[in-house]
Design a protein around this nucleic acid. Structure first.
Lengths: 238, 238
DNA sequence: CGCGGCTTTGATGTTCATCAAGTAAAGTGG
DNA sequence: CCACTTTACTTGATGAACATCAAAGCCGCG
């Protein structure tokens, strides 16, 4: 299985902030001494698949970012069901979306693969925003981007039919997350259903159709995309 | 017809920034002299119904906010159709959403009622963010809130059926926008369809059903909500 | 007056949800 | 390690909700 590749930077496990791959993407306006101060109020943890990283309704005390792994952002609906807002990979700034909007999280974050996560105290971040104008701009730009991406993804999804939605999820995993035509599906059929706003049975049916149409192969948890071009076409036209 | 009422502040037409109702909601961390500098790089304009305030794809040069009137944020789909992201009223910070995310607008903004709009040069705003930490925090919080509201609105809408969607739109106009059970519908049936992601015919059908069920009265462009309680129930349960 | 756009209603078709029932896989406790 | 339970997956049949197609009425405007 391939490693995560994000913008050609291989994600490492360095515990030192100043050497963290995030630095160049997010904290580049901070000097070493400022970064070291942030180091002091950060807290790095690992999570197993299925473990809850933060829970809907709990107080927002940290800027969370995903160092390594894969997570889902999800909300529970009134009728006991779950709805997945987004599946996020490293560098997706998972906690940024409602960091400053609310005192409590509007959604839960759960690991769907083993994760390494950094929590940085929110007051520490706020202090840096207030005292470092460039950092403020950087945060704002990142936040805007994250929000817009999520919104546009939802928008695009709502325009597609069942086949188009399934295809776009498969393209997402193969192109954006794993960068490979063969990968272990990290989510259940039911979770895919929650993500694309359809029912489990129809997710399965469409998988079977794609298999019969020789677009994908399914070997237990492994998906192999045989015909990426058709998949992309279905994803776009569907 | 009622005036716009937003958080009990009647929107006036004052051209002086320091007396603008927005000041207390948004620019309260700015001193008079800072605000006066902003005054110098602002530009207030009026738009008639149907006029385009900003166009998808054009460069983002200003923070746009709606002083008076009603606008729609919309995108054009590949197949020539239009999709409405949001209908915004004064104080909704219409241009904030993708202000810092992109060099060009991802959506168009069009007046659906006569509007008074303020454009503030983006470099001017950026300068204030960089030099005034509290202003930076204020902008960030506002942005988060706007984004979250739009996202949650879309989320809630996607869970409702046809009747629920129509009901929620009517509740939105009567409770949030016009604060009255009687109002002139500022959008066509087709525009409502674009907003709730259904077809024009079904919007009309549902309007007719609500009329037959004595929930609303329709007199030309005027809608009167006869039974607000049932409407709210349909909006929530649908 | 008549043209074009918006609205309305009815008939028909598609897509997807729901229900049902059965199989495979993965834990669980003796 | 094996019976037992549970959870995920799979397939088919049926129905409901909404889209699409068609046709006609209304209304403002040149």
């Amino acid at each position: 299985m391939p490693e995560y590749v994000v913008q050609n930077i291989i994600v490492d496990d360095s515990p030192v902030c100043s050497e963290c791959a995030y630095r160049n993407l997010f904290f580049k306006t901070l000097q070493d001494d400022q970064l070291n101060k942030i180091s002091l109020c950060k807290n790095q943890q690992t999570f197993k698949k299925g473990e809850v990283i933060c829970k809907e309704g709990s107080p927002v005390t940290s800027l969370i970012y995903l160092h390594k792994g894969l997570v889902k952002l999800h909300v529970n609906t009134h009728d006991g069901r779950s709805q997945i807002i987004n599946i996020a990979k490293p560098f997706d700034f998972i906690g940024l979306m409602s960091l400053f909007a609310n005192p409590t999280y509007k959604y839960s974050i759960t690991a769907i693969e083993p994760c390494s996560v950094c929590f940085i105290d929110i007051d520490c971040i706020k202090h840096n925003i207030q005292t470092n104008g460039n950092f403020a701009i950087e945060i704002i730009e990142k936040m805007s981007k994250v929000n817009e991406d999520v919104l546009m993804a939802k928008f695009d999804m709502s325009k597609k039919n069942l086949r188009g939605r399934i295809a776009s999820i498969l393209v997402y995993f193969s192109d954006t997350v794993y960068n490979s035509n063969e990968f272990n599906l990290p989510v259940s059929r039911n979770e895919i259903a929650e993500l694309i706003d359809m029912r489990t049975e129809n997710v399965i049916r469409t998988f079977s159709e794609f298999r019969k149409d020789k677009i994908i192969k399914i070997n237990g948890p492994t998906i192999e995309v045989i015909n990426p071009d058709i998949l992309r076409t279905i994803s776009e036209k569907g």
